[in-house]
Nucleic acid binder design. Structure first.
Ligand SMILES: [Mn+2]
Ligand SMILES: [Mn+2]
Ligand SMILES: [Zn+2]
Ligand SMILES: [Zn+2]
Lengths: 150, 150
DNA sequence: TGTCCAAATGCGAAATATTCTCATTCTTAT
DNA sequence: ATAAGAATGAGAATATTTCGCATTTGGACA
């Protein structure tokens, strides 16, 4: 295990983020650490690459936009984030916290709620079997008007 | 009813496509008629704007790409076509034949199969209610490997 | 702890997909 | 047949994402 000496007599493990990156096979570079910490700290769970770029800029952590794109894609491959294609076409990312879920999005204000429905999950496997497919993934997004907007 | 005289003594109604466009509140222009006829005649149901443009070019019906985009968007608003956002980001269109369905897409070869599952449809309404949303739409796409590809 | 090298970054250019602008052409009501 | 407004085509513009390459950095190892 990697150990760093920060204060005399105290041994401190590397940060959680450093470990998470290394476990994912990614070097713990400053931009990657900043992006991961940002995703863990923000209260907005579903963000475009541009959103991440601008929010980080605002909080003083500038990382090049191309790097944001590269790192989010790497995080996706590593299973650290999930990418969605809501209406509008462009990608939206969210920190992967282990529990799969789908989304219901307000077409007026853009609010995103998450849900998980076991029945729907099961039916999808039945459908895939019926069509001779091995499921790799799925995306279900319900669009509607939220209670605030109607 | 609009009547056109094509041959002496024979009365011919306007084409179905002309009527469909007019019912949709769209002028029956040549590009729109060509695009609609193309969508009705092709055996590939799910096409990008570029696909439509190139296929029509190949069959000698050139329509400007900007017009393809404009017309497909108008057709979508009129309910004549449906737009999807499968993985990859860009829009895919299909002629609307009245029966709602969702899709299962092969991530290897791109094959698209259609399905309809009443149980899933019902659960979505339960979920929307639970979250205080009025459903306007939804998109479910299952991704997997088709029987040909595994 | 210092050195070295592959890997990562930042920047601007390029690629993609889509929309816009505007001069010209077409549709349709009269 | 005409005229007015709507639609089209061509290319410019925009938005999103990726790429190329010179420079920097992380971390393995001396
Ligand atoms: Mn989510
Ligand atoms: Mn379909
Ligand atoms: Zn809302
Ligand atoms: Zn396949």
């Amino acid at each position: 295990m990697t150990i760093k000496h920060y204060l005399p007599g105290i041994m401190m493990k590397d940060s959680n983020e450093t470990n998470d990156l290394q476990k994912a096979g990614l070097k713990a570079t400053l931009p990657r650490l900043k992006i991961l910490k940002f995703l863990e700290s923000t209260d907005i769970r579903h963000l475009s690459a541009e959103d991440v770029y601008k929010s980080m800029l605002d909080s003083g952590d500038e990382v090049g936009l191309a790097t944001i794109y590269r790192v989010l894609t790497q995080f996706e491959s590593a299973g650290l984030v999930t990418r969605h294609h809501f209406e509008g076409g462009h990608s939206v990312f969210e920190l992967n916290e282990g529990k799969h879920h789908d989304h219901i999005v307000c077409v007026k204000c853009g609010k995103v709620e998450e849900f998980y429905d076991e029945t729907i999950e099961e039916r999808q496997h039945v459908i895939a079997d019926k069509n001779g497919f091995n499921i790799t993934d799925h995306a279900l997004t319900i669009y509607g008007i939220c209670s605030d907007c109607k």
